Computed example of a mutant assay.
Amino acid sequence: MSATGPGPWDIVDRLSAWAKETPWCDWLELGGSLARGGGDRYSDVDAALGVAGDVPLPVACEAVLEAAGTFAPVADSLRQNFGTDPAPAEHVIVQYADGRQLSLVVLAAADRPGAPPGARVLLDRSGRLAGTWLPRQLEASSGERREWAFLSWVNLGDAVKHARRGTVWRAVHSLGLARDYAWKLYAASRGLEYPEFGPVTVETANVPPPPGIEDTHPRAIEPGSISSAALSLAAVLGPLSEGLSVEGVRAVTERNLRSAGGDVTGSAPRRR
């Protein structure tokens, strides 16, 4: 991305102007770091668009892609089916040639009961966004936090198992999954909005990372280093798991970590 060319706000302005000139665009909201005032020229444009009337979502998405191509030269684009709460939607991703990116959720206007916290309303013809809408992802339920803790410990145990076998890339993959869930737990423990986005949420909120998280990354792709990183992640994960009813899986994984301490420093025969 150019350090001197147009930034993401140019895309926001062009998208807003197009939506205001397009009658079936009922509302447009901006999200992410730009909406919260913490973005910079490297920020993606995260937005949502409400489609009014009888315009089918696929037709609206094609119109969005056509319009987006007039904002700046496009390198590529993608449309995804996107399940949102409370109704399904489509997700349009536009990658501009200069490195900027537009991520736009397109849904029926009536399916949004208000604006989520942190969003900036750019257009609201019918007043649907006048109220506040609390999406399910805004905070984690106790069930979600238990699920994250359980899966983190399970993946941590898998990392140890694969390190013992010498299947180091599977070990690194499992370790990364375990760390991702730990980040989510940490964001939830700090009371941050949208904790399921883990490190994105933490850094957007300018909150310090979990103490010791840097040691959970292996220094080398070999069993001993992976085992050391796994032990460090267990130390991070322990306090985050308290009170979440995962004592059983935690005990098994911690036992395997202790027993693996003497035999993961060398490569083992590979197994499938």
Rank of each mutant, 00 (worst) to 15 (best):
D158M: 15
V94T: 06
V64R: 00
V202S: 04
G176K: 14
A63M: 04
A67H: 14
T70D: 09
W169N: 11
P117S: 11
L28R: 09
T216A: 11
R271H: 15
L192C: 01
G157N: 07
G39D: 02
G50F: 10
R136P: 07
I213Y: 10
A109N: 12
D85Y: 10
V106Y: 01
G176N: 12
M1I: 11
A75H: 13
D54F: 10
L107I: 01
T216P: 10
G212C: 14
A140T: 08
E147T: 06
A220K: 12
L175F: 15
G39C: 09
A75S: 08
V74F: 00
E147K: 01
G191E: 10
E196D: 06
G114E: 01
T265W: 02
A159K: 01
H217P: 07
E247A: 04
Q137G: 10
A229L: 13
A68P: 02
S241W: 05
Q101M: 07
D180A: 09
D44C: 04
L185S: 01
V55M: 12
L122V: 11
D85C: 09
W9V: 03
G176S: 12
L192E: 04
D124P: 08
A268G: 15
A234D: 12
F82R: 05
S174A: 15
P23W: 15
A3D: 14
